[in-house]
Computed example of a mutant assay.
Amino acid sequence: MAVLISLAFAGWWLFNAYAPRLMRTAFVPRITFQDSPQAAQPDYTALSGWIAHPRRPQSPALAAPPDFTRQPNRARMCSTLGQTPTSAAASGTIRWTTQPAGPCKWRPCVMRPAPSTASAWAPLIRQASLGAQYSRTEDARAAIDLAYTDVQAAFDAFLAARDPDRPFFLVGHGQGALLAKRLLAGRIAETTLSQSLVAAYLLGWPVDRNRDLFALNVRACQDPRDSRCIVSWSTFADPTDAEHFLAAAAWLERARPVDAPRLLCTNPSAARRMRSRSARRRTMAPCPSPRPRLAR
């Protein structure tokens, strides 16, 4: 029993000490991006190119808890374009990008807004594999670039189909937040589309309060009634060593790493409390930014 406990402790220590290296060994493809097989881009003019779509039968966006009361007479006021997080390791060392999966495999990843208040759009894309987030190579950036071409094509289809008078949300988590932030910078910020943006929810990916908000020319949401702003938070273990995560994000975004990042961290529970007490308090208090202890 003592030997088994010692081996378990040693394995736990080795994994924590060498986790990034082990993850690179397990998931980073051993071939170049050019040699990696790529699937064809989904057709976003067809329902088959979407995980969730207002006209898609049995759309995951229509799912609701058993006790949810639908309100069919309420007007659908907003559209939501969502990007899902990295969903698979992409066959380990075989592919730099994932094969777009069928909608049924993606349902747990799709945001589910109340069907009486919003129409949700979530495209199938050729995501960068998990290994791309553990690689500091141009192959990893090429995989992200390929995923972004799908996001842009889906966004074009979304713009062509949406009511131009209807405002919209932009939502992403993990890799989806990276792609949504890039879309916000390249296609929405400082354009007429920014007037229709309710808010961008960029979750599980670092958004620096100084660098990113300045570059995007978009402010952080401070009040539940704010619009044309960003809501973001990232979760970390406590204690944590976030050096790898922040360095990988900077590499994939082609940005200079920040020694002491000030990550945007909006507390969603504060917003919910605010909606019930808006007459007494109208400022959404941000939660303290995580303070990752970077290895020196």
Rank of each mutant, 00 (worst) to 15 (best):
A132I: 06
D238V: 12
L146G: 04
S269I: 06
A114S: 07
M1H: 09
R275F: 12
I144N: 02
Y134E: 03
D156C: 05
K105L: 15
A154Q: 03
S87R: 11
A157D: 01
A249W: 00
R30Q: 13
P37I: 01
Q99W: 08
A89I: 12
F158W: 04
A132N: 01
S194Q: 10
N73A: 12
L183R: 06
T137H: 02
C229I: 10
I94H: 14
F33V: 08
S59C: 09
L184S: 03
G131P: 01
G49P: 07
L179Q: 08
A17V: 10
I31M: 06
R24A: 13
A185F: 11
W12D: 04
Y148M: 15
P72T: 02
P65C: 02
A140W: 08
R182C: 06
Q83R: 00
Q41W: 07
A61L: 10
L170D: 04
Q99M: 08
I230D: 04
N267L: 00
S59D: 09
I94K: 13
P115L: 02
A2C: 03
R141T: 07
R209K: 12
E138S: 13
R275V: 14
I125T: 11
K181A: 05
M77Y: 15
A140T: 01
Q195H: 15
L264P: 05
A249E: 07
R281Y: 13
N267I: 00
G49S: 03
A260M: 05
S289R: 06
L294V: 10
P239H: 00
R107C: 08
S91E: 14
E190K: 14
V258E: 09
P85H: 06
D223P: 08
L294W: 09
S119D: 15
A147P: 05
A189K: 07
S91Q: 14
W96D: 00
R136K: 10
R187Q: 09
M77P: 08
L264V: 15
V171S: 02
R162M: 08
N16L: 10
F214P: 13
R56I: 05
A271W: 04
L159N: 12
R126L: 05
H53E: 05
A64V: 04
F155T: 02
C287L: 13
P103A: 13
K105Q: 13
F236N: 09
D165P: 13
R228N: 12
S269Q: 11
T192P: 08
G204P: 00
A132Y: 04
V258M: 10
S234M: 09
W121D: 00
L202K: 02
A285Q: 12
A189I: 07
Q195C: 07
L193A: 01
V258C: 07
A260R: 01
T137L: 08
A89Y: 14
R187H: 11
T283G: 13
S59E: 04
L47P: 03
R107W: 11
A160D: 03
